[in-house]
């Protein structure tokens, strides 16, 4: 009976200030969508790091006909130079840092190049002798690139030592910046949502002064008086959080999987169902925010 009473009170309250409730729903929805998007970005960064860091290597490019580095003044790398590099790779000073190393000949390089640019007409204009041969090295710890660089950059026959991770680093920096911006906007919007919920609850309490007065006089407990108001805010915020979860899922499905994954075929994107993990988190966040802000508001504006 008391439950039925509280539920009917909540229904009445939601109906009475419908426009405020709708604005709470929308503001919560927008703010939590930003939170969700930031979470998606972070998941995407983690995914890409895991994928690329395994594949990305340090490449030691050997001198070829076309290279013009000072180290390559004497022409393409000779077989002895190549063997020297191989020996150095196996030496005690370098070996512990290397997980694996593979020699990529000019023919292999051409094959990989053609695979990579399968859709582009450029693949037919490049020949094997234009591409340098290289040692592809996977490091035990990708951070230790500097050791390889110092050891090999001055070795005869080496054109250059390149850490491919560096190329990705700028992409990750960009994505991190984007997620910081999203979090910043989300924080602002959450402040708006909290204030709006507090105001809504205050208005709701003021419009029901008479009912509250009667409840107090007949000795209704604090819970019975306050719970409808708190739940009103919580329900509105929960609806907003559900909408935000749907929006995040839609972004993952239609934008990331439907559009981006089609555009960038060899980039690993997060799957749409990974976005489903974000939903419950947004719901908990929204409900907690509403519960806290409405009870603070009630404590200040509703004497019991």
């Amino acid at each position: 009976m008391r439950l039925a009473f509280i539920l009917s009170e909540i229904g009445g309250g939601l109906r009475r200030n419908l426009s405020m409730v709708i604005s709470v729903v929308l503001v919560t929805c927008v703010s939590l969508t930003f939170v969700g998007t930031a979470a998606l970005l972070q998941m995407q960064i983690t995914q890409m790091k895991g994928f690329w860091y395994d594949k990305v290597q340090v490449a030691i490019f050997l001198c070829s006909d076309t290279s013009n580095a000072p180290n390559c003044a004497s022409g393409p790398a000779t077989a002895e130079q190549k063997a020297g590099i191989q020996t150095l790779l196996n030496s005690a000073a370098v070996k512990p840092y290397i997980k694996s190393s593979v020699f990529e000949s000019q023919a292999d390089a051409l094959k990989h190049f053609r695979e990579q640019f399968a859709n582009s007409p450029i693949k037919d204009t490049v020949t094997a002798d234009q591409l340098p041969s290289s040692f592809r090295i996977s490091l035990v710890d990708p951070q230790k690139y500097q050791i390889i660089n110092e050891t090999f950059s001055a070795t005869p026959g080496v054109d250059s030592v390149i850490d491919q991770r560096k190329l990705l680093e700028s992409l990750f920096t960009f994505m991190n910046a984007a997620s910081v911006v999203a979090i910043g906007i989300a924080a602002l919007m959450i402040v708006c949502a909290v204030l709006l919920i507090a105001t809504t609850i205050r208005l709701s309490a003021q419009s029901r002064q008479r009912e509250i007065g009667i409840m107090r006089l007949v000795g209704a407990s604090k819970t019975v008086i306050q719970l409808p108001f708190v739940l009103e805010g919580v329900i509105a915020a929960a609806v907003g959080a559900l909408l935000a979860s749907a929006a995040v899922w839609a972004i993952a499905t239609f934008f990331v999987q439907g559009f981006l994954a089609g555009q960038f075929k060899d980039t690993p994107f997060i799957a749409a169902n990974q976005a489903l993990y974000i939903g419950p988190l947004l719901l908990i966040l929204g409900v907690a925010l509403a519960a806290i802000s409405s009870s603070v508001s009630l404590r200040r504006h509703l004497k019991v």
Partner: peptide, 24 residues
């Protein structure tokens, strides 16, 4: 008086019992 004008006479009196969780 302090009655709730949107409720009937019966509901106004019943309200005092409802908020205390009395059975229907």
């Amino acid at each position: 008086f302090r009655l709730l004008n949107n409720k009937t006479v019966f509901a106004n009196v019943a309200y005092a019992m409802q908020v205390l969780g009395k059975s229907r």
